[in-house]
Design a binder for these strands. Structure first.
Lengths: 224, 224, 224, 224
DNA sequence: AATGAATGAGTCTTCATTCAT
DNA sequence: GATGAATGAAGACTCATTCAT
């Protein structure tokens, strides 16, 4: 699905507002005003507010995929498809691969905090509709990817047996989402108000990366 | 704060609906109808819909505390205050204490899933107002408790140094919330639809408990 | 169905406006303003604009029935139920009975011109929904009544055989509706602008009565 | 007024939709979509939706006239101008002439059912504007024609005196319109659902023709 | 000549809240 | 203390129309 400039403008404004005030807490008027477009344009371009949300879900998914392909061409190491390529790489250890995957997730979530918040909120309710389906597919894909990597590590003897993959997923996603979602409280609670926003974001990313890598290494490799 | 029967009825109905459809997705009319009370009673008893949410936050906190005191009298091991008592217990190892604390959290979240969902949703937005303050206090208290326990374990040489407590918190709460919030997807993804609801809840609780204990043990005690 | 004062006020205002400007040409705002009630009251009392129309159909039907019962008590000769009683009356000739029935119809239509116009308009479209069902039932009842009367007259040898009852119905209702609906053109075309409105209405009723009685007498009794 | 292909396409699509859902119940978008033309073309060609309706009224009138002229050339007996010629025909009896006129009306209405429905609906309201004027002129013309024919018959002693011409008009038009407009109910009420649509239309036409001719003959010729 | 994009005004409906009783 | 009736404000959405191209 291709979107023109105005449509993107609307979706990205909506994304910010949905993240800030929730879907039901945001009015079409709010979006139109903040996006500096006519009120009727939302219905005009997306049909309805619900469909705008669906479009946003599709757009972010699409955007991710596009980014992935781009990244592959650029020989960077942060995309999901690159992930898939990487998994078959014989040179890297399974743990190195897992660390790369973790960093990829963190990167994604940190770069799309608004959308992450929306997903956190939306997945809590409505298990029906297109958004739910998209969330489900995303989760499925992610779990498959991680499963593949872990099973490979186990075959190579680098990872232990008896890994509860769904729970590892919950920890990976849950920890990252929780920190991002409650960063305001995290900042207050740990007296980091003096940091600039940029520093703080870097700080979060680094902490998350270290912490999750440590967790995964411990679970995947240590003797009990 | 004491609430009469009708007030409790309204709050508990609101809790279910807020968890299901979100705060803004639930109308006062919905609540009144489902709670079988007059529409005007919500404003009459709570002043406004916003204050109803605040009251709910206070009520669940209050309710927890009440439960705690009761539990202490019953000499059970699942309350927060009991937690505090337990921390000073010389007989238990620090890891045993941590495991107890983990189970306590899991218990709390599993028993109050509706309220947990509401908190997950609400903490993502609005960092102002009474609810935010309540969430902040809750997080602070929890972090203090865990800090105390971990520092104690470190002093006793049972736990390693260099524990990132806020991140451990994020993992504890994030993993539990994520699993509870996305249990629908978890069930689908792992082909557990045949389980009865009760069995499934037990399954979730057990998995969560094993997983989080393993995680904490690994991080707190293992050599790197 | 019992309606309170305000509900009646809304329905009767809506009736006038629907007759004047059509259902879709009338906004809820128009109705509320003309009826001097709050805009939200229409939804409050009737649920929606569509349901207001349905209520109006029910109300006018109900109103007719109520009138009938009242009339019976008053021993008047203008009600539908009285009609039914009259049909079995041995003293009246079949033609006298038919004339009474014709006058009853004319009376009804002349007294409820607004509603008649609405029915004329609505029956042209939408053959679904509650309004269509009500129109159908009304037509069925009327046709049964006239059938009974005509068959009786035929048995008594007062009416000829071979009467096309559905077409007679179409003439009775069609002629009356046409004259009422196009009275504005009738007045212009026949230079009756000088008449007062009241005189004109009396004139219409008298003309209609004479004309339809003559038509029915000719068809029902004359040799070809 | 000459219309190009697209304009005719638009008008004829509008005619169907106006007949189906009413003028206000039909959106310009509906028309454009069903007519497979660009949305802006309606305004572009007709100026506005109102003017489209006016154009339709003019078009159908124009179309009728055109047909008449054609028919005259073809020596057929169904046109209005032929009517005018016929009236002066010395060979036909006045009743034969009237029967021809009745069939002509029925033919016209049956062939243009959509437009008839629109007229039935529109004449009930708005007595201003160009459409009202067109309806008025049509009614005037028709009444003059019938008047001329009846007066001629009276002069020749074939028709009785004391004919209420406007009421006869109301019966002619009212009966035909009523049957056409309520044909759905007529079919249901008289158990004709098994007929094919074509058969049913023929049936309607035949019944109408027989009925109206019988009515007119009785009124115009019989002794009272 | 024809149209895609855009829009202001208007639609119906729902909302949380108030208030007289 | 409790509530039925009522309402102003706001909600999402649709409309006929315009205009630059």
């Amino acid at each position: 699905m291709e979107y023109n400039e105005k449509q993107v403008q609307i979706m990205e404004t909506a994304e910010i507002l949905f993240a800030e005030k929730g879907f039901n807490g945001t009015s079409v008027r709010d979006i139109a005003e903040k996006a500096n477009v006519n009120l009727a344009m939302v219905s005009y371009y997306f049909g309805s507010k619900d469909k705008l949300l669906e479009a946003l879900f599709g757009y972010r998914g699409e955007y991710f995929k596009l980014k992935l392909e781009t990244m592959i061409e650029d020989r960077e190491l942060t995309s999901l498809e690159k992930m898939e390529t990487m998994i078959d790489d014989k040179e890297l250890s399974s743990l190195e691969k897992m660390n790369t995957l973790i960093d990829h997730y963190i990167e994604k979530i940190m770069q799309q905090q608004c959308f992450s918040r929306i997903m956190v909120r939306e997945q809590v309710l409505n298990h029906t509709g297109i958004t739910a389906e998209l969330i489900f597919q995303m989760k499925k894909k992610n779990q498959e990817l991680i499963s593949k990597l872990i099973h490979q590590g186990q075959k190579k003897g680098e990872f232990k047996k008896n890994i509860d993959i769904p729970l590892m997923m919950a920890t990976l996603i849950g920890t990252a989402n929780n920190l991002v979602a409650t960063q305001f409280y995290y900042r207050e609670l740990n007296d980091l108000q003096s940091m600039s926003e940029e520093e703080f974001q870097k700080h979060l990313k680094k902490k998350l990366s270290q912490h999750l890598k440590k967790l995964f290494k411990a679970i995947l490799t240590n003797e009990e």
